[in-house]
Design a protein around this nucleic acid. Structure first.
Lengths: 204, 204
DNA sequence: GCAGTGTTTGACCAATCGGTCAGGAACACG
DNA sequence: CGTGTTCCTGACCGATTGGTCAAACACTGC
């Protein structure tokens, strides 16, 4: 059961997860129905439930797979690189993820908003250690005087908040900016670049 | 119907809205049931539906009332005050709202996340004009050289994102920080103060 | 062509949910 | 005290939902 064997199984589970990402991110867990997901995947409801035992199983599979993708940019933060450029690269990658994977961002936001009932384990066992590790790196940079003194965890929060905001609050962003069809991301990129450079650069 | 007349009506509608805020912010619109709200309010389901015609009516009443509270701090932004201090006061008030009104923040976030189906009107008719007005003020400050050059709307986004993050992603924040029971807000206050001072102060 | 396994579906079920309704209880007011 | 209005509730209804199941279908290897 762990890994699909036949070609059909792999194709269908992939299709289901893709469709489920669409529906869950748009309506939340309770707001999504198995029928919706099945239809979006081009399958019948019982057929979907042939591949996943329950609606919840689809959801947790999606979330489990998401965490790896979500944390990947942080893992690449290099202790031996240039501090400011390393952090700005992370900001850039996170913003790029908001642009290209807004559904994943919203799925994640939805889950955290509800108190992370199906994710609190992963949060403590995967996210926390990784952040601890990288926070130590940043604290080292601060101690060495290579970036301005900042609280590493809150720096992390600010990166997450600022980048994910453009995916999660997309409707609000576009409403405020007006300009139908205009892409907010180029300007966001410039703004965040300036913001974090000012925040991190050491003042003599 | 517009305004409750009898004492009982006012008391019960208030109790219902308070309970609904609890339940809606915790489970989202679809995730909340009328029974849950009624029980949380200490009423029977038909009794609740005596005061509000539908579940949706409760929700929109809540959202409509919320918008005023939510936009209040922005309205007080004074064009004649000291630019940096005015903006920092706004940041401070927004963070304070995240601390004291996390349920309202989550209710709002939930609605925007789903594409603001019951709020897109208000967004365009209330939020947009107010932001336009205040963005013009900030643009004036920039032009006068009283704050560093920033994109006013994206400055606004960053304030919203950074302050609301502490309410909406509370679980994640507390997991990352560890330290059971520790209050993240004092440190957040310091961090955001530094961040926006660096972002806005004019460099000679 | 045939057995055996993997895949798909229509029909169905129990539970839940939003909402209705007739009538009873509490209250206001003369 | 009586009467009209407001308030409240148990019982009920139709629709939706997550999930089941037996049977049909399709594919693979012999």
């Amino acid at each position: 059961m762990k890994h699909p064997r036949t070609r059909i199984q792999r194709r269908n589970t992939d299709t289901i997860l893709e469709a489920a990402l669409d529906v869950f991110s748009a309506h939340g867990f309770r707001g999504a129905t198995v029928d919706q997901i099945a239809q979006a995947a081009g399958l019948s409801k019982p057929n979907l439930l042939y591949y996943f035992p329950t609606k919840e199983a689809v959801h947790v599979t999606l979330l489990a797979g998401l965490m790896d993708v979500w944390l990947a940019p942080l893992r690449t933060l290099d202790p031996d690189g240039d501090p400011v450029e390393e952090i700005l690269l992370y900001v850039h990658r996170k913003l790029e993820m908001s642009r290209t994977m807004p559904r994943e961002s919203r799925l994640f936001a939805n889950e955290i908003l509800q108190g992370a009932p199906r994710l609190s384990g992963t949060l403590g066992e995967e996210l926390k250690p990784l952040v601890d590790e990288k926070a130590a790196v940043i604290a080292g940079w601060v101690k060495a005087g290579r970036i301005a003194p900042v609280h590493p965890q809150h720096l992390m929060f600010s990166i997450w908040a600022l980048t994910q905001h453009y995916a999660d609050f997309d409707v609000q962003v576009r409403t405020v900016l007006g300009d139908e069809g205009a892409d907010p991301f180029p300007e966001a990129e410039r703004y965040l670049d300036t913001l974090f450079r000012k925040m991190l650069s050491v003042t003599p």
